[in-house]
Write a protein that binds this DNA or RNA. Sequence first.
DNA 1: TCAGACATGTAAGTCGTTACATGATTCA
DNA 2: TGAATCATGTAACGACTTACATGTCTGA
Lengths: 217, 217
Amino acid sequence: MPGAGKTRFAILGLLSWKPMSGYDIKKLVDVGLSYFWSESYGQLYPTLDGLVREGLARKRRGAGRGRRSRNLYAITPKGQEAFVAWLRRPSDIPRARNEIQLKFFLSSRAPLAESIRLLQEYRRQQREVRELYAESEAILRAAVREGSLPGELEEVLADEGTDPATPAGDRANEALIFLLTLRHGILAVEARLAWCEEGLRSLRRSARNRKRPRGKR
Amino acid sequence: MPGAGKTRFAILGLLSWKPMSGYDIKKLVDVGLSYFWSESYGQLYPTLDGLVREGLARKRRGAGRGRRSRNLYAITPKGQEAFVAWLRRPSDIPRARNEIQLKFFLSSRAPLAESIRLLQEYRRQQREVRELYAESEAILRAAVREGSLPGELEEVLADEGTDPATPAGDRANEALIFLLTLRHGILAVEARLAWCEEGLRSLRRSARNRKRPRGKR
DNA sequence: TCAGACATGTAAGTCGTTACATGATTCA
DNA sequence: TGAATCATGTAACGACTTACATGTCTGA
């Protein structure tokens, strides 16, 4: 009984697209889902075995000899059911543990300059993230206009395995949802950057007021 | 060697305010820091012992008999140093693992209605969070105007332990930084809600286009 | 020919939570 | 008197990461 963890269903969900090997899944997550998900091999392979033992997936030995032979995993009807049931279960609120926020809060008794430095570091970090997102968004918007999937995803998903009967409208939908997922990240980053500006303004105003505390009551 | 984990420094940072017991720290985190941090007893007490073993904190047996006697932990100069050094170390980018985002992404091959439902669930959840934040913000803004700390924090921090020599300006600063920390949460929630609206608009437009796919190319 | 991608897996360790055990004190 | 809160701790588990071990195939 390997837990009711999220990794199980993340994998199951990806297998519901098409049969894949552990290596494929890792690639797909790293390349396409990295903005909101991650998996390590140490989780991946044991979990795949677990899915097979529970009858949620089937393992098929692919071509190739020795270590080079890919194991293809396919979702079973039972697995499909379990996946949909999970989709419909309420999601837990992610428990918050944000290091930068913690540091900023704990800096309240340090010199103001320390808090300002933390804010600037955060801003620098988030600006970099925004750049990454912006590039992805440009690629994706183009894909949405064409109703296709973008290059990297295409590679992993679209070659041999995809059902050719999938209507173009469905492909467009997939791209749209991928785009929206990315938009979530972008709006979040922009909110964080707006917060940095607000914070820097507040702290600098506070610093000025303390240098010449004129109208004090 | 109990890891270079974040819990150690979170605790150290709180002890840098004033000596506290494990129970105090848990209360303080639950009541005042819950928007961006959490600690469990299972981490707390062993970590406190670890800090003492490393000479970063000192344990002092308080009044009371048997199990009721509080253990007060105070930071040492070495601990203070370690804390400040941590504050200045670059923070790691939190690795992303967002269940709702994952579900939304994986819903791309389900009926559109499923994606819309997920978005609505997310919106409902985030609206509740926004209410909580709004209440806290009102209390905090009042406290900032007065240059004091708000009730709950006052309780844990301000009674006997606080240095009476702390200038009023410093108290105002602490309240301001607390307020800014909260603002981070608020801006984040509002960004998520804005995303929900954007997403719902997009998906509904997409649904309409597929019912009567008139101007197709 | 050999670096680098392909491919699978395991062992050990970190980090954290939940649930429980224990007992004192307060107050309705 | 007995429920709630104060207070400290531990045991067991769960989720995940890192680092390693092993071997194959491809292409410059």
